[in-house]
Design a protein around this nucleic acid. Structure first.
Length: 309
DNA sequence: AAGCAGCGCAACCGCTCAGGG
DNA sequence: ACCCTGAGCGGTTGCGCTGCT
């Protein structure tokens, strides 16, 4: 037995919404809310539309305070940073940009922003800036990277190198023998983060991990990146425990490094990687300091209110 | 002016997850 | 514990618009 369809496809209208349909839906939802049942809603108001279609139309177009187009430089930067950090989790990214929908951001990223950023990569490569050599280094090593590293991870790595200009650390990519060892380090750090009951405990245990780093390979690049991971993890925790906000560039850089390597763990999806590593909690309970000028906490609350009809 | 290609966006599809029975 | 249903999400598609030849 297959999955039951969400609506009677034969009697459902598809394609663009007419102004009349929009008006009906808008009027009803503004007056009565969705009643927590999108499937039943179109029948109630006499729309020959699928409930999912109604929901999408409301969330992406009819909902109050929606903004379309005209993305600012700050929004560009925030989207880029978040994408590099967490990938294509558009709903989470949208939660940081009040008035923007996940669909809008997804479209904007795929059609404009990605090209804009990669364009910058090419420009800087042509001009021979420091980041260009790193970017080309990563490109040259794509072939040698372990199978299973997704295109998304590669893309994010490339963008990461471009945006953060991480000096030195990515030379680790020239040492395939270190990949799995680094992955083990990442696992240790994350399990500490996950298992610890509070920030103080995490800091204590991560400090211990840092002090036992000599048990790991002695290549300078590996030491540098290992320290980088632990330091940035500590930085994130300390910042969070002090003011409830994560340290954007550092935490995101940390997560970027780990996700890149985690995805080399053949067979396990990157989705598993994110489970329990705290990023979701960070995203849902605090905000990124790069947006402090935009008062993100207030904006996030406004966004939630916008959805919670 | 017509044809074509590329782009941007709205909408759809199919999947996962959570909650209730 | 299992099944069913609905919500939500990310990926993909299709269509209209625009600019170029």
């Amino acid at each position: 037995m297959g999955k039951a369809p969400c609506c009677d496809k034969a009697n459902v209208k598809k394609g663009p919404w007419s102004p009349e349909e929009d008006a009906k839906l808008k009027a009803y939802v503004e007056r009565h809310g969705t009643g927590g049942n999108w499937i039943a809603l179109p029948h109630k108001i006499g729309l020959k539309r699928c409930g999912k279609s109604c929901r999408l139309r409301w969330l992406n177009y009819l909902r109050p305070n929606i903004r379309h187009g005209g993305f600012s430089e700050e929004e560009d930067n925030l989207i880029s940073s978040l994408y590099i950090s967490i990938g294509s989790r558009w709903s989470i990214i949208a939660a940081q940009l009040p008035g923007r929908t996940d669909n809008d951001i997804k479209n904007y990223w795929n059609t404009k922003l990605k090209k804009k950023l990669l364009g910058r990569c090419k420009e800087s490569q042509a001009s021979g800036s420091p980041s260009s050599s790193q970017e080309s280094m990563v490109s040259q090593n794509y072939e040698g990277l372990p199978r299973g590293l997704s295109a998304s991870a590669l893309e994010r790595m490339q963008l990461h190198v471009q945006l953060h200009g991480l000096q030195g650390s990515l030379s680790l990519l020239n040492e395939p023998a270190l990949w799995h060892k680094f992955q083990n380090l990442g696992n240790r750090v994350l399990s500490i983060q996950h298992d610890s009951t509070n920030a103080d405990e995490s800091v204590q245990r991560l400090t211990e991990t840092s002090s036992t780093m000599e048990s790991l390979p002695s290549q300078p690049e590996f030491d540098e990146l290992s320290s980088f991971v632990v330091e940035n993890t500590l930085g994130g925790i300390e910042t969070s425990s002090l003011n409830g906000a994560c340290s954007t560039s550092r935490s995101m850089t940390f997560n970027m490094e780990l996700v890149s390597f985690r995805e080399t763990d053949g067979g396990r999806e990157s989705e598993i990687w994110w489970a329990g590593n705290g990023i979701d909690e960070q995203l849902s309970t605090s905000s990124w300091d790069s947006t402090s000028a935009m008062k993100p906490e207030t904006m996030f609350q406004e966004y939630l209110l916008g959805y919670d009809l």
